[in-house]
Design a protein around this nucleic acid. Structure first.
Length: 245
RNA sequence: UAUCUAGACAAAGACUG
């Protein structure tokens, strides 16, 4: 039932894995059949609540239920493995997808790219993006954000900047994470003018700046002694009614 | 008979500690 799926999914998402388990058992008692969407939600919740063993088990149970994993089910499993640093495990599932009817999507690749990026294996991450392109899957701003942030964090800001130029040229709508990464890098280099420039550019470029974008810039301006500049940003925030988090 | 329609997936983003 969809109601159960929604309930269990949101219980996991609010950190109540234990309650989710209770309802899962209730479904069994009432003889409600598990469908693929529910099983996928369970796998995802189990991974995110630190129960990878059980999540993997759920994947195996799929065949017992005569359910065929689709791209989302695979992606959840891949993401779970990659977040635990098991890149070989993630890659082997990706190969498996190609043999089956489950076509990888940009989300699937994002999980793998992020896995490598977390490990500081950025060249490998870029390689995965190339493989993705060969599959005719276009990268999105999300993918670029992962890579740009990764390269900055790794101290390779030249490559981060190159990727930034690449997204810009692509015409994709930039996102808040990309701006954040760029502004942080400028802040660290003591280049507040550059940070302000990027900020204004994206502000007028169709990106809806969020709370972190504003407060991050304000932080930099304050620390650079530019109080009036910081206050002007605060005023703009208020005028635009930016949501606080 | 056919098409559309619900629920599941990707980012250790700023400051502070």
């Amino acid at each position: 039932h969809v109601a159960y799926t929604n309930l269990i999914d949101s219980l996991f998402k609010t950190g109540s894995a234990w309650e989710a388990f209770v309802f899962q058992n209730q479904m069994i008692v009432r003889g409600i059949t598990f469908d693929l969407v529910l099983c996928t939600a369970l796998m995802d919740g189990l991974f995110k609540s630190g129960q990878p063993r059980e999540a993997e088990e759920m994947f195996h149970i799929l065949s017992e239920l005569n359910l065929i994993p689709n791209n989302i089910a695979y992606t959840v499993l891949i993401d779970g493995r990659c977040k635990l640093g098991d890149m070989k495990g993630g890659e082997s599932l990706l190969k498996e997808m190609h043999k089956k009817l489950a076509k990888p999507t940009v989300v699937t690749y994002a999980s793998i790219i992020n896995g490598y990026a977390r490990k500081g294996m950025l060249d490998e991450a870029v390689n995965v993006m190339k493989r993705m392109l060969e599959q005719n899957i276009a990268p999105n701003a999300y993918i670029y954000a992962i890579l740009i942030r990764g390269f900055f964090k790794d101290g390779r800001s030249e490559l981060a900047s190159e990727l930034y130029e690449e997204v810009r040229r692509s015409g994709l709508q930039l996102n808040n994470f990309i701006l954040d990464a760029l502004v942080n890098s400028s802040k660290r280099g003591g280049k507040m003018e550059a940070a302000e420039g990027l900020f204004k550019e994206m502000n007028s470029g169709g990106l809806l700046l969020d709370c972190i974008n504003y407060t991050s810039l304000m932080d930099g301006l304050f620390k650079a002694g530019n109080e009036s500049g910081a206050l002007a940003i605060a005023e703009e925030m208020r005028q635009k009614g930016v949501k606080f988090d």
